Amino acid sequence: MRDQTGDEEFTLLPDLAVRPLGGSVIWADDEFFAEKENLINPGPAVYQPSSFGHKGQIYDGWESRRHRGQPGDDSAIVRLGIPGVIRGLVVDTAWFTGNYPPAVSVSALELSGYPPATEIAERTDWVTLLDRAPVTGDSRNLFPVENEQRWTHVKLTMHPDGGVARLRVHGEARPDPELLGLGPLDLAALENGALVLDCSNRFYSAPNQLLYPGQARSMGEGWETARRRDEGNDWVRIRLAGPGLIRLAELDTSYFLGNSPGSARLTGRTSDGTEVELLPRTALQPDTRHRFPIAPIAASVEEVRLDIYPDGGLARLRLYGEFGA
């Protein structure tokens, strides 16, 4: 496999879209032959000759069907795991030889909050980072980008169809300024002394995995409950590393696609047993690292209860703040 076009120096920068950093392929208009999620998997694409499934040769990448009588292009949208300034793109067509797209383009958006994927796909204000450019099959096609804006989402478009193994989005992180300085310590981390005290259900996996260090690498590394068949909801109680003032909450549903909770709520308990609301019931999106500022409260809390509605799974829970009396 060969490198085609561009300057490779930008590839030394982090890949802002890669899966281990929380990137997610949230939408594609077609993924008939190979799943869109493969685009941001870590590591190079692999290939096993003559490995056929019901839809043909199995590819480690994203591949759409051949267009027949319907003109147009195929697109996939990636939500960056770390928003930032993009310095270069790698469109890797490894192992795609007779089925790679003749050309690609890439555009970007900066969005706040967590809008649904279908809403993002319908937007018309995408900004072009890479105009329609030819690509070569079975190659790493490199494209430097000159743009100083912060981005949260990118859209890869194939002209007109075909397959791409990996999309790498190299750049420099630019965090949301509204979230800076809200708390230097994760009060819910196992490594800091936090512990799950109880939970409503642990059918698929242990709730303590919510508090593990690092990011989950699969759905099995989070907490997942059985499907509820009543009117209740699932929950977990956590003893914090110590009484503290929580400033920022992260609810991570990474890898939970068809089984993420519809919404969640956080409440705290002070040392005298008083219950305080930290995060009101808030809608969640699948496969997303949600970060929510927590309104200041006068008293510190020593326990937190996470309610999910009605059931499902989360990869991680982070509660950033500082110890307080």
Rank of each mutant, 00 (worst) to 15 (best):
T225V: 06
L39W: 04
S300L: 05
P49T: 12
E250R: 15
L266P: 02
L190Q: 15
S260P: 00
M1E: 11
S64Y: 00
G6Y: 13
N99C: 07
L210S: 04
G23S: 05
R305P: 01
A108H: 09
D161C: 09
D186R: 08
F10R: 05
E35Q: 13
F143L: 12
R87H: 15
E37C: 03
P213N: 13
V236I: 03
E31I: 02
R79L: 06
I58V: 14
G232H: 15
D125P: 01
N192P: 01
L111C: 01
E275S: 08
R289G: 09
R66W: 12
I246P: 04
R239W: 01
T97H: 11
S205K: 14
G61R: 06
P243M: 03
R228F: 04
V25E: 00
R265W: 03
L284D: 02
P293A: 10
D230L: 00
P310R: 14
G88D: 07
P280S: 07
G162W: 10
E172W: 08
I308C: 09
L306R: 01
P293Y: 10
L182F: 05
E221Y: 13
D198F: 09
E122D: 12
H54F: 14
G6F: 12
P184A: 12
A189I: 03
N38I: 07
P261G: 01
S300D: 11
G232K: 13
D7V: 13
K55S: 12
R281Y: 00
S64T: 15
A264Q: 03
G321S: 06
D29F: 01
P101R: 12
H159Q: 04
T270Y: 02
V135I: 15
A188G: 10
L248N: 01
F143I: 11
A216Y: 06
R269W: 10
R229I: 13
T157N: 05
A17Y: 02
G183A: 03
R174I: 13
A325T: 14
W27C: 00
D307Q: 09
Q215F: 13
R265C: 03
R202T: 14
V127N: 07
E322H: 11
Y59L: 09
E172H: 05
R202W: 09
G69C: 02
A315C: 00
L180I: 07
T157Y: 08
N41M: 15
F96Y: 13
E37A: 13
E277D: 06
Q285R: 13
A216N: 06
G61M: 05
H170P: 00
A299N: 13
Q70D: 11
D311T: 08
A216F: 06
S112D: 15
T270H: 07
R237N: 13
G324P: 00
G321D: 11
A133G: 06
R316N: 05
